[in-house]
């Protein structure tokens, strides 16, 4: 599967990674190489094969409905690049 430049731009946008125009072409080539190599999976007949849903054979464990965390805004905010009045701050979002 060859990955074209528009596809690279589209997925870079979806992944929120700025990609200089100069990197689009080489990235398309790299991804095409990798996806081409991955194509060999099409050799295998997978009809009637169930996709793997969990690596371990156990049911989902559950927690009790008890408040045991939170109440520590200081630790929560300690790594924040920008914070104000206990809020995380981002450039204004226009809806």
């Amino acid at each position: 599967m060859s990955v074209d430049k528009d596809t690279v731009r589209r997925i870079a946008r979806l992944a929120r990674i700025a990609l200089d125009e100069a990197r689009v072409e080489p990235m398309a080539a790299e991804l095409s190489g990798i996806m081409g190599w991955v194509e060999q999976l099409n050799e295998v007949d997978v009809t009637n094969v169930a996709p793997m849903t969990s690596v371990v054979a156990q049911s989902l464990k559950m927690r009790d409905d008890v408040v045991s965390e939170g109440g520590n805004a200081e630790a929560l905010m300690a790594n924040a690049p920008e914070g104000e009045d206990r809020f995380f701050v981002v450039p204004k979002v226009v809806e």
């Binding site: 596809t7 979806l14 992944a15 990674i17 700025a18 996806m35 450039p91 204004k92």
Partner: peptide
């Protein structure tokens, strides 16, 4: 703006191989 913040922070913060794999995964 916020999208610009995401895109620049991630482009600056992630190295090439990580970016490559994120793009493969997104694809």
């Amino acid at each position: 703006d916020i999208a610009d913040l995401y895109e620049k922070s991630r482009a600056e913060g992630f190295g090439r191989e990580v970016q490559r794999r994120i793009l493969i995964g997104t694809y």
